[in-house]
Design a protein around this nucleic acid. Structure first.
Length: 751
DNA sequence: GACGTTACCGTTTTT
DNA sequence: CGGTAACGTC
């Protein structure tokens, strides 16, 4: 039992409120910290860890702290070190996925995997599922691989293996799915690969099947801390239970069973979360875990943090009003002592361009009148696609910005190709990667040869690589194909021989040269290939940085780090300078805070998203997303929407978001008549050219450009003119690279 | 087997 | 509208 908080004094408790102090010092039973937005939960977590180390005789290696993003983990570690000096090295502070990988690498052989197993992301696993479905001769219309892949992911989040899935299947569709699941899993195992969901599920399996492994980790970790507990799915929930070593476990049917924990007392569990910020149900997260914590851990203590240190009362009142519309929620009321602050500003734009322009102008105005820097401003939207208009407008107005997430670096084709090579070198059994690069760059191994190799491998019951090795034994193979395959295999063997003692960056260079990948891009006429080269060089420099950071690092470790990066990890750190406006989805925004926040496209159909509006449960999740968005703002909050929005093709006239209506109207200062959309919509119907600016026809003017001008290119998008040389201009397209273009022909437009 | 064309598909949110 | 997959042609 905790001591009454009033009597607590300790340097690590200075500046904490009574509830926070209690959370830091609590011991003796599982602890749930219900931390409202901005209530200082990271502070509490880091102080708790520091307190454990400083006052409770805990050694760093006895602590396991789990987060959802690498960024959160890194920040937590740094803050602990700042409190009590650099003692965090032997502490595990990492994401669910990283922690599981680390455990699995050590024990992989017990599950029949090589310790250098590949990690398949969602794209890889979809590819593999597509292969499986094709093999099963399934009509992709009736049995979409994408959907199968998603459903298998759901199974794994629920810890349902393919046998159980098959047992439970009652319809033809379900039986087919279970069959695909089985084949998919078999292929993964053969390839020595795990998908994202396996990382969790197989760790749970490992702990459940091998008592000695479970015991090892239970002995080690006397404290388990979990951040963002509301985002855990069933598999992660079970993992935590296994690691903590609870004396009791509930089966799927709700029966309590005794669990042998080898006489080790359960670890002390501390979870932090906020059910109102649960926004990942679509990937299996269940709010149940936080709502039922006290039932799962019978003598648990719950501490509520309701004082918000982030936002003005106006912003909090708005947030409370919105979230209170959700049913079945434990009441919670955030409050602030920072005063009312500015009113929320509402704006109804004519269309999405006008909306973006409003944001840009407002950022300028705030800079002039209130000294707000771009780095203090964030723009949120519901879907990644929405970033485009803002980018265009910000480039045109010269407002510095950065988009977080969206088309990710690691999803680019060339980057994935190079990574596939490295994966094959680390794990030659990795068929998905192997088949990806089999004919990349083109080396004369076509679909036909690949199919024959696959058939040959199946018939001979040998791995795919082995089939390649014996290509000449396969009947009916063209000599040309056989030779091409032989050459490819020889190249791989050569690279594999080097892989062991060559740093990843050097190896990557070597791959690019030896395969002719670099030469092909360098000699290419396609100007986009220049950007691709830059991306590859970028990947190589990521590898170099990795080598610098961990000189002992292996290829497998490098690939692992690269596989487990998240969007949120890429958020620019405040550098003390002016900074740049940050653009991101509402999901990525969770956990962050900004002095000024723009919530855009507040329209029914966009936010809440159309697909969620029919389902009350999903609508509630959208509302939590709105709550997350609103509570990111410290001082100023803007809500905007567009009367007309042209989303892929036709214009749509969306009504105001219901979430806007849920905010008490006296908190909002409308900069334009909220009814004007009716008028605009009518006008737009009468005169479509108003909303659809004349599209360039064939007769485009040759632009006269000077350095610094901003342009858009039909293919490369937005760019800045670097230099002009007669009829040619060199233009920097940012991530797409710099190109020299002939003005007379390039599909360019000056902005 | 490589390349070009067409059809079609889909957009929530992601470790 | 834009990207990808399947198809058909050289």
């Amino acid at each position: 039992m905790s001591i009454p908080s009033a009597s607590l004094t300790h340097p690590l408790l200075d500046g904490l409120n009574p509830q926070q102090r209690e959370a830091v010092v609590h011991h003796g039973s599982p602890l749930l910290i219900v931390a409202g937005a901005g209530s200082g939960k990271t502070r509490v977590l880091t102080h708790r860890i520091a307190y454990l180390l400083a006052e409770r005789d805990t050694r760093p290696q006895e602590i396991l702290a789990i987060t959802f993003t690498n960024k959160a983990a890194k920040e937590m570690r740094e803050r602990v070190d700042r409190l009590i000096g650099p003692r965090s090295a032997s502490m595990w502070v990492m994401t669910f996925h990283s922690a599981c990988v680390r455990i699995l690498r050590r024990e992989a052989s017990r599950l029949g995997f090589p310790s250098g197993f590949s990690i398949y992301d969602q794209a890889d696993s979809q590819r593999l599922m597509a292969m499986v479905c094709r093999e099963m001769d399934l009509d992709p219309k009736r049995y979409p691989p994408r959907s199968f892949s998603a459903q298998v992911s759901n199974f794994k989040n629920e810890l349902i293996d393919y046998e159980t899935a098959a047992d439970r299947a009652s319809t033809h569709m379900e039986r087919t799915l279970a069959e695909a699941y089985r084949n998919y899993q078999q292929r993964l195992t053969e390839a020595g690969a795990m998908d994202f969901d396996d990382l969790i599920m197989l760790t749970v399996t490992l702990l459940q099947i091998f008592p000695d492994v479970a015991e090892h980790y239970r002995r080690r970790w006397r404290h388990v801390l979990v951040d963002e507990y509301q985002d855990t799915n069933h598999a992660q929930y079970t993992l935590i239970r296994e690691l903590v070593g609870t004396p009791e476990l509930r089966t799927a049917d709700g029966d309590l069973v005794r669990e042998g924990s080898a006489g080790i007392a359960p670890a002390e569990l501390c979870v932090v979360g906020d059910a109102d910020q649960s926004i990942y149900a679509f990937r299996g997260a269940t709010i149940r875990n936080i709502l039922e914590f006290e039932r799962d851990y019978p003598n648990a203590r719950t501490i509520l943090l309701e004082q918000n240190y982030r936002s003005t009362q106006t912003i909090l009142t708005a947030a409370n009003a919105v979230i209170s519309r959700n049913e079945n929620r434990k009441p919670k009321n955030l409050w602030s002592d920072q005063g009312a602050g500015s009113k929320i500003v509402g704006y109804v734009a004519d269309d999405e361009h006008d909306e973006a322009m409003f944001v840009a102008q407002e950022v300028d105005r705030l800079a002039d009148e209130e000294g707000v820097t771009p780095g203090q401003v964030a723009v949120f939207y519901r879907t990644n696609a929405a970033s485009r208009v803002f980018e265009e407008t910000f480039i045109r107005t010269g407002l510095p910005y950065k988009v977080v997430g969206g088309v990710r670096f690691y999803e680019r084709k060339e980057v994935r190709d190079l990574l596939a090579y490295l994966r094959v070198l680390a794990n030659p059994g990795d068929v998905v990667s192997l088949r990806r690069i089999l004919n990349v760059p083109k080396r004369g191994i076509g679909d036909r040869a690949e199919a024959m190799m696959e058939a040959f491998a199946a018939r001979e019951r040998v791995p795919f690589v082995e089939a390649l090795r014996r290509a000449d034994e396969a009947p009916g193979m063209a000599t040309r194909s056989v030779n091409a395959i032989k050459e490819f295999v020889a190249l791989l063997d050569d690279l594999v021989a080097k892989a062991g003692d060559t740093p990843p960056s050097i190896l990557a260079q070597e791959v690019l040269v030896r395969t002719g990948y670099r030469a092909e891009l360098e000699n290419s006429e396609d100007p986009q290939d220049e950007g691709r080269l830059e991306n590859l060089d970028e990947l190589i420099s990521v590898a170099s940085e990795f080598e610098e950071a961990s000189p002992e690092g292996t290829l497998v470790e490098f690939l692992e780090q690269v596989s487990l990066v998240a969007d949120a990890d890429q958020i620019p750190e405040a550098d003390g300078g002016q900074g740049v406006v940050t653009l991101m989805t509402l999901h990525t925004a969770k956990g962050l805070e900004f002095p000024v926040v723009f919530l855009t496209a507040m329209e029914d159909g966009v936010f809440p998203h159309m697909r969620s509006m029919g389902e009350p449960k999903e609508l509630e999740e959208e509302r939590r997303l709105a709550y997350v968005g609103i509570t990111r703002a410290e001082r100023r909050l803007y809500l905007s929407r567009a009367a007309v929005r042209s989303s892929w093709g036709a214009p749509s006239f969306n009504p105001a978001s219901r979430f806007v209506a849920e905010i008490p109207s006296e908190l909002v200062d409308w900069r334009s008549d909220p009814r004007k959309n009716a008028w605009t919509a009518a006008t737009a119907r009468r005169d479509p050219s108003r909303t659809a600016p004349a599209k360039r026809a064939g007769g485009r003017q040759i632009p006269s450009l000077k350095p610094g001008d901003r342009v858009t290119h039909d293919q490369y998008g937005l760019g800045t003119v670097v230099s002009v040389d007669g009829d040619k201009a060199k233009i920097d397209f940012g991530s797409g690279g710099a190109k020299t273009l002939v003005l007379a022909y390039a599909p360019l437009e000056k902005l």
